[in-house]
């Protein structure tokens, strides 16, 4: 059995880390957009807005029911074929679109559950003092739903960071793509991919700390 080439591995770290910002940027953009879309979907579903509710259900079931990779290929290869104005949709854009839609479908469901989880009698109390639906959502329900939803949403964010690695199948040279290239040149596949794995693991660990800190802060809020 061959011994791992440690020098090569150490040398690879700075090379691969150069691509980390792109990975994080795609994840951050995807997360922000997915959160906005998920909130919209969740509110539509909670309020059972006519017509839009049907559309939201369809959207959610499609993006939860099909693999992310298939969705990415649809956006990257399929869309330009339908709409000629998109002839060259770039891989990064397609990845962000795919991540946004895919994860917003999951996040919409957990946000909806969190909204429904806020004690219904508080909604009635808010209405009874003359608040409008919008005021009651903004001031009473959403702040509490956030507290319920944050742990799950953070987990989706971690999943999303890992899922950005699929961008390399669309020709994007991000963390995974760069490792793939390096390995193809050196034939040291195991070394290259174990370094990628370690880098992903490191990010996830860092963010888990952030998650625990956030949850601690949020839990402290109402218990005094």
């Amino acid at each position: 059995m061959n011994v791992l080439d440690l020098d090569y591995m150490l040398g690879l770290i700075p090379v691969l880390l150069k691509y980390l910002p792109l990975t994080l940027e795609m994840a951050a953009a995807g997360m922000v957009l997915a959160l906005v879309l998920a909130c919209l979907l969740a509110v539509i579903r909670v309020l059972k807005v006519p017509v839009l509710d049907r559309f939201a259900m369809l959207f959610i079931s499609f993006f939860r029911g099909t693999p992310l990779l298939v969705q990415l290929f649809l956006f990257y290869y399929g869309l330009p074929q339908l709409m000629s104005s998109l002839t060259a949709i770039n891989g990064i854009t397609a990845t962000i679109m795919g991540l946004t839609m895919h994860f917003s479908a999951y996040m919409a469901e957990s946000i909806r559950a969190a909204i429904v989880g806020v004690d219904r009698s508080q909604t009635e109390a808010a209405l009874s003092i003359g608040m409008t639906n919008a005021q009651l959502m903004r001031r009473i329900v959403l702040p509490q739903a956030t507290r319920i939803a944050v742990p799950t949403l953070m987990n989706y964010f971690l999943d999303m960071i890992k899922a950005t690695s699929l961008a390399f199948t669309l020709g994007v040279t991000e963390l995974m793509g760069s490792a793939q290239k390096e390995a193809a040149g050196s034939f040291l596949y195991f070394e290259a991919f174990i370094i990628v794995a370690i880098i992903y693991r490191g990010i996830v660990e860092l963010l888990s700390w952030l998650q625990r800190y956030l949850e601690h802060r949020l839990n402290r809020a109402y218990s005094r």
């Binding site: 004690d119 508080q122 109390a125 003092i129 608040m131 001031r139 702040p143 509490q144």
Partner: peptide
């Protein structure tokens, strides 16, 4: 309305539960 199960806003302290209506409405 005063509710059987109180129905206070869990994310607001006692003072803000009372002030909420004056501020928002």
């Amino acid at each position: 309305f005063v509710f059987q199960n109180y129905a206070l806003f869990a994310n607001k302290n006692a003072l803000d539960n009372i002030a909420e209506r004056l501020i928002v409405v």
